[in-house]
């Protein structure tokens, strides 16, 4: 608003304060558990800090009290990776298809919306019961992966819609006009131009799967994923080990987010500037 840009009035400061408070509200608690996860061995769930140590991280790794956290972490990482890969590929092609009108498009679209709107645990119940009826056993890498895909695919498709909104299909025509086959058009033009958007889809694919809990509970069979382990810990663990695992998983998430943002901005900088 140009008026605001001429002179910063009273409202600016009120709104800026409100916004800052909101950001504090958003990050403050996370920062606090990050700090508290370095609590000394005698420290409790809240301040004061009784020394600074890595005791609770060590406790996580060595103590048997917390169940199979290492296994849960590796399962969650593998599921995240698989969901990411499948989501990117499936949603990329589905997004391309949705640029044209075809029979059944709205059925698939509404299935996606339903999957997002319906309580997650209900989808988990449905998938586990389907397996039951088919006489199949539940495995984290099969039924669990399926449950995660029911969550990541609809998101991925919606992101692809947004990504393709800014994609001009005359780029593909220009490639075909220059004699490129369908495959070469895809590899030389469509994928490279859409690459930053595909990274965004990958980010959603990984993090949504990595942090997914409600759909997983009934579908992973005997082996839990990390979010399920952590949610069990919330009611049983009363030491800062809870914060330590929180710090670990948040750091992993933040690394993934950071890597995604960094690669997107590197690509875009390269595109905007002379080589």
């Amino acid at each position: 608003m140009s008026q605001a840009s001429r002179k910063r009035g009273f409202e600016f400061y009120v709104l800026a304060a409100f916004f800052s408070l909101f950001v504090l509200f958003l990050y403050g608690p996370m920062l606090v558990i990050f700090i508290l996860s370095f609590q000394g061995p005698t420290g409790g769930l809240t301040f004061p800090m009784r020394g600074v140590s890595l005791h609770w991280f060590y406790d996580l790794m060595t103590s048997g009290r917390y169940g199979d956290l290492g296994g849960a972490l590796s399962r969650s990482m593998i599921l995240g990776g698989l969901s990411m890969l499948i989501t990117v590929i499936v949603c990329f092609f589905a997004g391309l298809a949705f640029r044209r009108r075809f029979w059944g498009a709205s059925i698939i679209f509404y299935l996606c919306i339903i999957s997002l709107v319906v309580p997650g645990i209900l989808v988990g119940l449905g998938i586990s019961q389907t397996f039951q009826i088919l006489g199949l056993r539940l495995y984290w890498w099969l039924s669990g992966l399926g449950a995660h895909l029911s969550w990541t695919l609809p998101f991925g498709l919606l992101i692809m819609f947004a990504v393709l909104n800014r994609f001009d299909s005359s780029w593909e025509e220009a490639a075909r006009d220059a004699g490129a086959s369908a495959w070469k058009t895809l590899m030389y033009v469509t994928v490279p131009i859409l690459f930053p958007g595909l990274i965004a889809v990958a980010l959603f694919g990984f993090t949504l799967s990595y942090d997914e809990m409600p759909r997983s509970i009934l579908t992973v069979g005997g082996s839990n994923t990390l979010p399920i382990e952590i949610s069990n810990m919330t009611t049983t663990v009363t030491t800062p080990a809870l914060y330590a695992i929180g710090t670990v998983t948040s750091v992993i998430s933040l690394l993934v987010i950071g890597a995604a943002f960094a690669s997107i901005s590197i690509i875009q900088k390269r595109r905007a500037r002379a080589k």
Partner: peptide, 12 residues
């Protein structure tokens, strides 16, 4: 060879 109205130059 077609020259497109919006040129359709490859941005990458």
């Amino acid at each position: 060879a077609l020259m497109f109205q919006n040129y359709a130059l490859f941005p990458h």
